[in-house]
Design a protein around this nucleic acid. Structure first.
Length: 319
DNA sequence: AAACCCGTCAACCGCTCTACT
DNA sequence: AAGTAGAGCGGTTGACGGGTT
């Protein structure tokens, strides 16, 4: 019974190594994401295509916010889960910097329990006005209006998605011109379309971040770091070449090398403030898999407000 | 110090959907 | 219209780290 495995038996499983990440990112830099079937053969990675796609979309793709969820995000997730159910991809579409996997994990490991506790205690805690209680506490009229709003927004997003889009080459051309003045100050949630200012190379930021953690947590692996750096130098061709490698670097030195190599520091410094305003970055990649909700008529901030505030926005959002 | 428990999260599995022929 | 392959999605697993006993 059951279908045959999607991949050959020879494929590697388990955690991805930095080397593999760099190879994957390097390939995607050159060819763009998509055609995942071809990725393992073209890169020589002994990973199945699915695994490559997953690794990219859930971890390496630029613009992904990692780490703690903010209270706002938490409320949005609770609200959206109540509205949409366990449709994590749909929920993730409203949180452009989070992956569906991340949201799913957060829900299963934390939010569900938190809400269960609240429900069990019958208290109206800090989350009492949102979440599980939404469908129970709101009037039917409110619920239906929300549903209509959701459908309306979905339609808008669909028509948006069907409208002509920029080609990737246009994107890349813009990227190069924008990358120099990348100190984005505009809000990601602006109602105007964000200017694309990302390159595939930006996934090097993600790699660098991951490598930094990897090197810190496992200094004993330093033996393999030289090869990583070599790969990085070869692969991340948009990165600065200033960070030349040293034969006997300590892990700290190496991570510094990566920082300069990938421009990691700038990302790190702003990472704790990885607010929506941080990144028009990532929009290119969000276009790959997520509906473009930034371009719809309803400004995202309004949507956010709607999600976070039960009583608010009903007037503004009724159509 | 060792054993155990628990929470987190990256990754896998298998199913469904969609596009293509 | 039917078959097929690739992509996407949600559920689940397992490794790992931290806390507790």
């Amino acid at each position: 019974m059951g279908r045959p495995p999607c991949c050959d038996k020879g494929v590697k499983k388990g955690p991805w190594t930095p080397e593999e990440d760099i190879i994957l990112v390097s390939y995607i830099q050159d060819h763009g994401p998509g055609n995942w079937k071809a990725v393992p053969t073209n890169t020589g990675l002994s990973r199945c295509s699915k695994s490559c796609r997953l690794r990219w979309t859930n971890y390496l793709r630029p613009g992904i916010k990692r780490g703690n969820f903010t209270e706002q995000e938490e409320k949005m997730i609770i609200h959206l889960q109540a509205l949409l159910g366990n449709r994590w991809a749909a929920i993730a579409a409203y949180l452009p910097q989070r992956t569906d996997n991340d949201i799913k994990n957060y829900w299963n490991t934390y939010l569900k329990k938190k809400l269960n506790k609240l429900e069990a205690s019958g208290s109206e805690g800090s989350l009492g006005h949102v979440g599980v209680s939404v469908s129970q506490s709101m009037s039917r009229g409110q619920w239906e209006r929300r549903l209509q709003t959701d459908i309306h927004m979905a339609k808008k997003a669909l028509s948006e998605a069907l409208s002509p889009k920029k080609t990737s080459s246009t994107f890349l051309a813009e990227l190069n011109s924008n990358r120099s003045n990348d100190n984005s100050t505009g809000s990601f949630y602006n109602s105007t379309k964000p200017t694309p200012s990302i390159s595939y190379a930006s996934s090097a930021d993600n790699i660098a971040r991951l490598l930094k953690g990897w090197m810190k947590s496992t200094p004993k692996r330093a033996a393999t770091q030289n090869s990583i750096i070599n790969l990085a130098c070869a692969g991340a061709d948009t990165a600065s070449s200033e960070g030349t490698t040293k034969g006997s670097s300590t892990s700290v030195e190496l991570s510094e090398t990566f920082e300069s190599l990938f421009g990691y520091e700038s990302l790190e410094s702003s990472n704790s403030e990885f607010s929506p305003s941080l990144s028009p970055e990532g929009t290119l990649f969000q276009d790959e898999s997520k509906p473009d909700i930034t371009g719809i008529d309803v400004p995202f901030s309004l949507l956010e407000k709607w999600l976070l505030d039960d009583s608010g926005c009903q007037e503004k959002l009724s159509f």
